[in-house]
Amino acid sequence: MFSLDTTLLAQMETPWAIILPVIVIGLSLVWLLPRGGKGLSRLSQILALALIWGSLFSLTGLGHIAVTDVLFGVFSTGAILGGICMITSRNSAYSALWFAIVTLSVCGLFLLRSAPFLSAATVIVYAGAIIVTFLFVLMLAQQEGTAGYDATSSSPLLTTVFGMVLFGSLILGISSWPKISISAASPATSAAGTEVAKAPAAQGHRYFTSAETEQANAWSRHPEGEVGSLHGLGRSLFGDYLFAVEFAGTLLLVACIGAIAMAPRRSQGTL
């Protein structure tokens, strides 16, 4: 089902199959990034985006087509091209809207990985509140069109080179992962309920088996069929990751109180 993420990448022998698309993407990005002046024509913009998309396509090497593959293609294309449009757009309001597209596409990917609650929560928090606040600020600040310093990217060549080095090494790293078959990757409890292989444990990474976590914490026991459901998520958040969740909550509360303390009072003249 998810043949495109690891298996086909692992079959690639030569690193040139990775390096070449990465270079093409980088060149297209430099071409696209706004640098003052008149800017690119619509046709060359579309051409550059098509080049990027084609390179990414060659990186994934789409195999047999299933509905989930098509959806994966749609969402990942939306996320990547939306992200590129976000950093290359000359208008900040359009950038915020492309950011919304990126968030929605990533939420679609979450859905495909059977994490519906995470997906819905991300839509509510990011697309529904945070980007709305971005737009709010942008519209207050820039009703007369964008300022010159907002419409240019400050050092397009350097940022693209660094970004592409990071991207290439990431792809190389992922492609060197061992081939994971879905049956081993999905947590399936055996009849005795002893051993669960959640992830590639053979690679030297240490993952807890369910028997071990059960000793530590009875709450993290996952009944059959609960993985990906709301009950499973809640059990995991408030069982496996209780301290992390509580710590993050406390941190946010402290940040909230700090923000209120720093904000000027009405009697001091602002707001």
Binding site: P116, F117, S119, A120, A121, V123, I124, A127, G128, A129
Partner: peptide
């Protein structure tokens, strides 16, 4: 939650 997510858009 789905309804809230969609209507928040």
């Amino acid at each position: 939650v789905f309804i809230f997510a969609v209507t928040s858009l």
